[in-house]
Structures are given as structure tokens and as C-alpha cells.
Nucleic acid binder design. Sequence first.
DNA 1: ATAGGGTTAG
Length: 636
Amino acid sequence: MLQSALAVTAPPQANLNFSAHDFPKNKIAACAPPSPFLPLLHRCRSTSEVYQVHGAIIKSGEGHDRFLLFQLLRRCSSLHSIDYASRIFESVKQPDVYHWTALIAGIVAGDFPLDAVLLYSQMMGESIAPDAVLISYVLKACGSQMALEEGKQIHGQVLKLSFGFERAVLMRLIGLYGGCGEFADAKKVFDEMPDRDAVAGTVLISCYSDRGLIDEALGVFCGVPERDTVCWTSMIDGLVRNGREMAAVNLFREMQRENVQPNEITIVCLLSACARLGALQLGKWVDSYLGKYGIRRNTFVCSTLIDMYCKCGSVEEAMKVFDGMPRRDVISYNSMIAGLAVHGKSLEAVQLYRKMIRLGFKPTHITFVAVLNACSHGGLVDLGFEMFESMEKVHGLLPEVEHYGCMVDLLGRVGRLQDAFDMIQEMRVEPDHVIWGALLGACRIHGNLALAKKIGQILISSEKADSGTFVLLANSYSSFGKWEDAARMRAILRERGMQKEPGCSSIEIDNELHEFLLGDIKHPQRKEIYEKLEEMTVLVKKEGYSPAKSEVLQDVQDQEKQWALAIHSERLAICFGLISTKPGKTIRVMKNLRVCGDCHSMIKLIAKVTGRKIVVRDRNRFHHFEDGSCSCGDYW
DNA sequence: ATAGGGTTAG
């Protein structure tokens, strides 16, 4: 029984001006002219149009023409109208392998791809020989559903039927094995192919990248002799998705040197690398490069540009791109709303959301993550609840853990800790580290150690306690000055061979990204950087800054190390920015963790005494420092 | 006679 077999319903009528009378019935026997229905069928853009052409075909008396039925099947399948395709298939007397293939192609692209395997064996049962094209479709279904066992069986038949040299089949086998993580088999198929095919290589590269095996992906990439745009793009994408953004940018430069034209997708991947790096200059260069290389500014590219500009700290540039778009989709709105939210422009984010709804766009889950995020950064509790409740009631979207997370964050920040705690207890999804982390952060802001400890107990006694749990608790305990508890958590982490992510900040100077670790002394200009830091420390102390040692010292023994560790990476990056750019120029720094309170108050004063704007992206949001204050209003 | 490849932002 096919899962997809549903009752066939008549499609809605479209107004197409033709009837059976428009087409001559009498054929010239000697050489049959091509059917006039073919171009019509080709032009069909919806099932209802196919339905009308089908009707016309029947009226013209050609309703049993096997070739026309095949073409009808193909059209239905490509329009994802599986029910209608099934019905046409039923009307074919003794369908041949082409009819089966056309039907199965539709099934593979539908909601229940593995039905293709059932149909395939049904066909075999009727003693119809499969060909390589059909088998490649069935293998595609197995690959997309990770149906390794079924795939292996079909692989066996491939060998028996001598299709082991068919390119389409081999391609699908690589996708199947690679997608299932069976890389020995995937590589074997790839290596046995007659040439080092760029497409097969691309399949394998993306399978390796999906599983974080980036070096293996690079190995395959290097072994492909004639790499096309897609192959380069998949490698660049793999690097970006595996945290190797700089390598991705360098690979793009190499691609240019080899004169391989990038396409829109290449650019999307490259912009995504810029966004993650926070490399604004690089991102601007990519933007300016588009027109010259014939890259169309489609909604995909523009949405990525918006995302890139927002994540690189320039919400103004993002807005320019957004305003300049001839057409927008929900994703363009999502990117822009999320960008406004993360820059603390809560009301603007909500206004844009309302505009989007007014214009008739259907919001997605991502839209609500962005909007609720805006509410929580802005402390807009009532509005947040209104939005949260409208998700399900008005838009039919069930809240997910991220949405509850935003609500917990919102409630926690304004001090409604018990309400936030109750929300976690009552929600219908499993709490994750992010959501407990949000509440622990709120406990710190509002000085509620008791609740923090209670959460710690819940987390440790839960079966899913992992490295993330202990990192979270270590941070939480140190924020309360509970050094012994924090040390205990870090000891557990060490025992298990896990480490906290080290703090790291970066700044882009003259198109080059400079990275600084906590207390870093590796930079060639370290002397000037530390002198600048010394100078700043003196200046900000005059403005009333006093270092809050408790945030940084912790349990480090060695005196010198203690001194080095006291210097958070963002301070080094900012000081490097101060000595490397002209006075008055905005300084933009990216940090992988959240900025601490001590650095936050120091940076406010650095902005004041130097007269600079300083933009810091931390793990959660942006801080725009200017003249002694921060856009977050010290609420983050 | 007939069909068939890979990569995509939040």
C-alpha cells in the first residue's frame, strides 16, 4: 500500500482557450507530424492546465497514445501532482519502463520517496526490465531517505544487470553511501569511475562536508582535474559550514585566479563566510564585485547581503540593500528583522514585522525568533507575549524551543525569574542548554544564587548532562564569585577531556583579519598594543573606571599568567584598532563569547576618551559604544 | 522515438 495514494480530486478549472476542435484528427500516414499537444503540455504550469490538455487529448481520440500518456505523466510528476500521475498511469495499458520511470520520478520528488522502491519491485514483479535511468531514480530515493539496506540491494541488482558503468547510477551510489556515512564504499565507487568526474566529486565533497570531514573533502577536491563552478562552490560552502571561513575566502581567490566564473550560489557562500568572520571590508568588496561579474542581485543574494551587513555591524548598509530590492520575500524580511533585533533596534524590528504582515507575507518560525529576540533585547514584555501568543492563534505556528528561549530570556531579564522558570517547566518541548543558559544569565543579573543552584542541580541530575552543561555551570558559578564550585565544574570538564571555548576577538584592518586570544602576546605589534592598553587604562581610570577583578581572576595560580589572563581579547583588538586606524574612524570588533561587565564599562569610557564609535559583536548581540554609553543601555 | 547529474541565505 502506497502511503501517498490519496483520493484523486478534480483540479480547479483554469481558463485556457482551446478545445479538441482546434486540433486536426486526421494524421498523414507516411510520416506522423509531431503531436500539437506536446508544445501545449510543455507550457503547462499547473496541474489544472495539464488536466485541460489531457481532456483535449481524450476528446481528440488520442487518449490511449502511449507516447502522449508518457509525456502527460512526466509533466504531472514534474509538477508534483502524484495523485494525478497515478491516475494517468492506471489508464496506460501495459505500461513500459518509460511510463514507470515517469511515475517513479514524481514519487521520488514527493513526500514519500521510498514508495519508489515499492513501485520498482512491483514493476520487476511484472517482468519489466529496469534500465539505468530508472535505477538512478530509485537510488536517488534511497539516498535522500538514507535507506542504506534498500540501496545496497539495488546496488546488487545494478551489478547483475551490468549497469555498473552507468554514470547516473554511479553518481547516485556515491550520494547514497556518502549520505549514509559509508565513506569507504562511496570512495570506492568514486575511484572506480573511469574519469575523476567533477559532478561525482561534488557529490562526495558535500557528503564529507556534511559530516565535518573537511580534509577528506579537500582531498577529493584536489583530485578532480576539471573543476567547474559548482564543484568550487561546494568546496567553498563546505569550508564555511565547517568553521574554516578564511580558507573559504582564500579558495574563492584561487577560483578567480583559475578564471572559473562564480555564480549566485558561490557568492551566497562567500558572503556567509564574511558574515561569520565579521569582515565588513571583504563583504563590501564582494558587494561591489557583483555587477562586474554578472551576478544577479536576486532575492537570495540580497537577503545574504542583508545578513552579512547586519552581522558585520552595519545595519545601515543592510537597510540600503533591503530598501533597494525590487521584490522581497519572507526571508528578506526575516534577515532584516533579525538584524534590527540583534542591533538593539527593537521597535524598528517590530514595525518592520507589522509592515510585512500588512503586505500579506506569511511569517515563519524564523520570523518569530527574530521578533521575540527584538522584544527581549528591548525589554518589551507585553508585546513579546502578544507576539508569542499570536504565533499559534493567528499564524498556526507551534512555538519551538527557540521561541520559548526568547520568552525565558525576556522574562528573566526583567526579573520575573519565577515566571521564566515556570515557563521552562510547562513548555511542551525539551529544554536545552541555551534555554537554561538564558535563565542562569538572568539569575546572575538579578543576583539570585538560590535559583541558579537549583537549576544546577536539575541539570547535573539530568541524564543528558554533557560538556555544554558543565561549561554553563562553570560560567554561572564564577559569575557569582563561587570559585570552588566553578573549579569543580572545570575539573569535570578536564576529566572528560573537554575544554571551554577560549575567548577570541578579531578586527579587520586593511582587508586583513587580526585575531587575538585572551592575554595574547603573539601579535607582531604587541608592544604598541599593550602600550595603548596601558594608556587607555590610565585615561579611563580618570573617568571613574575601577577594574572588577572578580570577573577575571578566578583560580589561576601563577602571578604572571594571572596578569595575562586578566586581559580580555576584546581590549587587545580595540587597542590594535586604535593604533591602526585614523582618529574618528569607527572600530568594529567581533568576539566569540559574550562581553563581560568589566570590559563593557571600560569600552564605554574608551569610546568617550577617544571620541570613537566602537561596535562590538558578541555571541548574543551588537553593542554600539559612543561617548560613554552603549546602545544596549547596559541591558544585555 | 521517449528520460538522466551536483551546490543555496534565515
